[in-house]
Nucleic acid binder design. Structure first.
Length: 770
DNA sequence: GGGGGAAGGACCA
DNA sequence: TTCCTGGTCCTTCCCCC
């Protein structure tokens, strides 16, 4: 598809006059009107569709709110235009110089060597439903409810029915529309099948949602070059394209067609089957992947192939449905593609940005590039850098893998709710659900945010940062209910009329601390420590960690969370874990690539051995010492726990739990008790638990070890309870983190930003080059 | 002035 | 009669150090 600027301008003009004829203000249309920026929606009678949408929406509270938002955007544009009027020639000259300089740098670092693919399933939810219910195939249908549609099939799109449109409006546009309720379990199952295929092309592919993903095929292409034809041959499934789920499941069981690595399936070479041989180019690899997806799921996918993620995403939309498009890895080809591309096609440019740019006469990426100096004076650095990337056809070439979750939330929309008791009850329900989700992922966060949408569609969020990271229903509710109370009180004696409530927890504590409370042997024995808390990293010896702790002595006292060193592994379920580097606490020997079972056996042996030749020699006797961390407390006293040193990050600040090494000869220490215990073992009598200090029978060292493990875990919990007394939120109520400053929700009118947000595609290497 | 919390908004699927 | 959900990131304001 070619984008013609002239056609587009003419279209805008026509729409403007059509609006005038219909007494609709054109500036309102941009929010309420049909967004036909979607495959299968080209050439629609927009005026007719918009008229229906507006007539259906007009007068509703939603419409009124949209109107208000639209006016806010218009004000932003006015401000921007005033700012533009103040720009001098000199300012433009300087700005241009800066733009040129940055452009040169970006051009120098342009990377064209990666083969990035964006795969997007066509009308995914609708396609799954049509596959499983063939009678829907020829009807306009959508998935969702009368309130909101998730997606629509291509028949429905011809009527202007699309995702994110309320069902009742869709019904006005297309009275014969069939609305099917969502069935996420089914979509997830299909998505898993598709992802299985993705992983064969890029094991580290980046899923964006159930129906789309980015893949880096660079490595695959290298290998593929040397593949014989048999490895690129796939057999065509004769199954009906509209087969039922049962058929699909049957197919799934077929090793011939669907468990389809030709190399590992010699039976595939049956001559009676129709085969398709794919080539070695990127286009062929992607065509093969799409073919396999279709064979396995009976669903089609579209794909874009480009040197970066931004372009790949745009490309996947180019030949939708069931098509693909490639931008060759050459600068000229990229620039040619970008030239006429409407800015709105770029992911990250939404309707507000589109409108603001349009006010400056910028519709396509070519114009975006030409106006960059002006944009650099009107938008924030982040925003115009983003625009510059787009105009140069640059995007991330480095997929951000394993990025950590920042927040977790749950929200619910409902009919008007005015009763306070009901609202508190709902709030608790939400907290309950959220707590379950948080605990499922082992997350704890310090900021609780309550989101409210009133019946006028006005959204408010109120946040409160608690002193300790929370994850239970009670803890979250304690904070959320106070936030809710303030809102209810603020409109009293009128009722607070809500249509949505949500609760969010963010500000997660570090990766290491957000794991369950139980501290594993792995955590104790890990050499040194690492910010990430990963056991597989070897960041320095246990002795070195002692130095670290000294160095960290000048740091602020560790936050109380630090008293809960934790990992996700318990001492009893670690057998499958192999670590790159461990250090035995008894003999201090480094052990590489050892699994925990073997490591535990080694410690047992060492304990026996140490017991036999128990010869404590003071601090120079690492073989018979254990580490006891010392956590500084406010009164300067030591806080001892039987843990090894442990470093973590809280809110970006690195903190270290201090570790003090205590030789066995040191009296009155748990370590010396261990020494005594070892001595006892040597005498075959009893062993004193280093944690609870109780003598234990020593007939069986394994039993003794289990006892110590249990004690350790109990002590962790005890310390956790001591250091985390139940938070009485009624005391903390709305004090916020700034101490005396009362939280309450600011009633001030926010100055609207005239800045744009950054496109997430530019977080990779390229962005760092700026 | 910088860091960080709060609030609100843009954008995405 | 009816306009979602869950997530990320950005921007601005404001307080504190």
């Amino acid at each position: 598809m070619q984008y013609s600027t002239n056609q587009k301008a003419q279209g805008e003009k026509n729409r403007y006059f059509a609006c005038c004829r219909n007494n609709f203000r054109p500036d309102l249309l941009s929010r309420i009107a049909l967004n036909d920026n979607k495959a299968g929606m080209e050439g629609l009678d927009r005026d007719k569709i918009n008229k229906i949408i507006l007539e259906t929406s007009k007068g509703s509270r939603f419409y009124e709110n949209e109107l208000k938002k639209e006016q806010q955007v218009n004000q932003r544009i006015e401000k921007m235009m005033e700012q533009k009027a103040r720009i001098t020639k000199e300012m433009m000259k300087q700005a241009q110089a800066e733009v040129d300089k940055l452009t040169c740098e970006l051009e120098r670092s342009r990377e064209l060597g990666r083969v990035i693919v964006h795969v997007d399933m066509d009308a995914f939810y609708a396609a799954v439903e049509m596959r499983d219910c063939p009678e829907l195939k020829d009807k306009p249908m959508a998935v969702g409810s009368m309130s909101m549609l998730s997606t629509s099939n291509y028949h429905a799109r011809r009527f202007g029915v699309r995702a994110a449109m309320p069902g009742f409006i869709a019904k006005k546009l297309c009275p014969n529309l069939v609305i099917v309720p969502t069935n996420f379990d089914k979509y997830r199952a299909v998505s898993a099948q598709v992802r299985e295929i993705f992983s064969e092309y890029d094991p580290h592919f980046m899923p964006m949602s159930l129906d789309e993903a980015y893949l880096d095929l660079t490595e695959h292409m290298e290998q593929r070059k040397h593949w014989p034809e048999t490895m690129r041959t796939y057999y065509i499934c004769d199954a009906k394209t509209d087969r039922s789920t049962a058929d699909a499941e049957k197919d799934e069981l077929s090793p011939v067609l669907f468990e389809d690595s030709p190399s590992s399936s010699p039976s595939l070479s049956g001559a009676d089957r129709k085969a398709e041989v794919f080539g070695t180019s990127a286009e062929e690899a992607v065509r093969e992947m799409r073919f396999r997806i279709q064979q396995k799921t009976s669903l089609t996918a579209s794909a874009g192939i480009a040197p970066n993620m931004m372009l790949a995403k745009v490309c996947s939309d180019k030949n939708k449905p069931n098509g693909q498009y490639r931008i060759p890895p050459e600068r000229q080809a990229v620039m040619e593609f970008i030239k006429d591309l409407p800015v709105r096609k770029v992911s990250g440019v939404g309707k507000v940005t589109e409108k603001m740019l349009a006010a400056l006469g910028i519709v396509n990426c070519d114009q975006l590039g030409q106006q960059m100096a002006l944009l650099s004076l009107l938008f924030s650095g982040t925003s115009w850098h983003n625009f510059l990337h787009i105009s140069l056809g640059l995007g991330s070439t480095c997929m951000e893998r394993d990025s950590e979750r920042k927040s977790m939330s749950t929200e619910r929309t409902f009919g008007e709710m005015s009763d306070a008791e009901e609202q508190y009850s709902l709030c608790r329900d939400l907290c309950h659900d959220l707590a379950q989700d948080l605990q499922r992922e082992g997350l704890k966060g310090k900021t609780v945010t309550l989101k409210l949408k009133n019946v006028k569609f006005e959204v408010k969020s109120r946040a409160f940062t608690v002193q300790y990271a929370v994850c239970t229903e009670e803890e979250i509710f304690a904070a959320a209910k106070d936030l809710l109370k303030v809102e209810i009180d603020s409109v009293s004696p009128q009722p607070l009329k809500l249509r949505l409530m949500g609760v969010r927890v963010s500000g997660f504590i570090s990766a290491e601390d957000k794991k369950p409370l139980q501290r594993s042997i792995m955590g104790f024995l890990q050499k040194g420590g690492s910010d990430s808390g990963s056991f597989t990293q070897c960041a320095g010896s246990a002795l070195k960690a002692e130095d670290d702790s000294d160095a960290a002595g000048c740091l602020k006292p560790p936050s109380t969370e630090m008293k809960v060193p934790s990992t996700d592994l318990s001492t009893t379920n670690t057998q499958s874990d192999t670590t790159s580097c461990l250090i035995c606490p008894v003999c201090n020997k480094e052990m590489k690539d050892v699994n925990l079972t073997a490591f535990n056996s080694h410690i047992d042996e060492c304990l026996k051995g140490s017991a036999m030749d128990n010869e404590p020699t003071g601090s120079d006797a690492p073989s018979t010492s254990i580490s006891v961390p010392v956590e500084e407390t406010d009164d300067g006293s030591d806080f001892k726990t039987p843990f090894f040193s442990h470093r973590t990050k809280i809110n970006g600040k690195r903190t270290v739990i201090h570790k003090k090494k205590i030789p066995l000869s040191e009296p009155s220490s748990k370590a010396s008790q261990t020494a005594n215990s070892l001595d006892a073992v040597s005498k075959g009598l009893l062993l004193t638990c280093p944690v609870c200090s109780q003598p234990q029978s020593t007939d069986d060292l394994a039993l003794f070890n289990r006892h110590v493990d249990m004690c350790l875990n109990q002590e962790v919990l005890l310390e956790f309870r001591e250091s985390h007394p139940p938070v009485d939120h009624s005391d903390l109520a709305l004090k916020g983190v700034r101490g005396s400053s009362p939280l309450p929700p600011s009633k001030k009118i926010k100055v609207l930003s005239t800045k744009h947000t950054i496109d997430k595609f530019f977080k990779g290497n390229t962005r760092q080059n700026i």
